[in-house]
Write a protein that binds this DNA or RNA. Sequence first.
DNA 1: GTTACATATAAGGAGGAGGATATACATGAG
DNA 2: CTCATGTATATCCTCCTCCTTATATGTAAC
Lengths: 107, 107
Amino acid sequence: MLAQQQYDVFQAIADPTRRKILRILAEEELPVTMISSHFPMSRTAITKHLKILTASNLVSMEKIGREVKCRLQPEALLELKEWLAFYEQFWDNKISMLKHLVEKDEE
Amino acid sequence: MLAQQQYDVFQAIADPTRRKILRILAEEELPVTMISSHFPMSRTAITKHLKILTASNLVSMEKIGREVKCRLQPEALLELKEWLAFYEQFWDNKISMLKHLVEKDEE
DNA sequence: GTTACATATAAGGAGGAGGATATACATGAG
DNA sequence: CTCATGTATATCCTCCTCCTTATATGTAAC
């Protein structure tokens, strides 16, 4: 019910715990237990977060022996970057407009 | 109960309806009723979404007569941009690594 | 094999998110 | 003033999210 679902990147990064997991995995690949040791909650809870991160392609999980290596897949954030790019024009415009006003004011 | 709460930008953009509201407001400032006309849900529901967007500083609301003009405040997305910037280094590395491999292959 | 470790899954509970309807209030129009 | 319009608020419902504990499975180590 959780793994099959195709999770939204926007929803995936909405949770602070999941964002922290991404930060941790940015430093190094880690098995589930090692990740959960950074949090005050159960391993089960972390597993669920990892499932959501996997479903949105932000993290990949590979079974190695009895461990599961979790790896960050930052490319999934491209969708977010593209979404943001649309709005960047507005604050760019605002800045250039402001700059223009300031320059005009200096005359 | 909703207005006082300081909403997260990450949480604010997690909802597709709210993202659509942002898109609409990117085109032009609009009163609540005009915004809600774009959606198959009640004005009340849209008001709630707008409260959340306001609480995360993504939208400002100004009462003009009996209307409330809603305006996009794209600067609030800077937090998101900065968050993303941290991860961009990783896919940049991957791309430059790929480029390197391709160039090597061409020799 | 037996024991210990890494993980997955099932079941359940509290609270919040997102929606609806009904009511109330303020403002502009006639 | 009266009426219609634009919004806000109160209440309620349902479903999902996040977390828990308990149980099961698979692998490594002894």
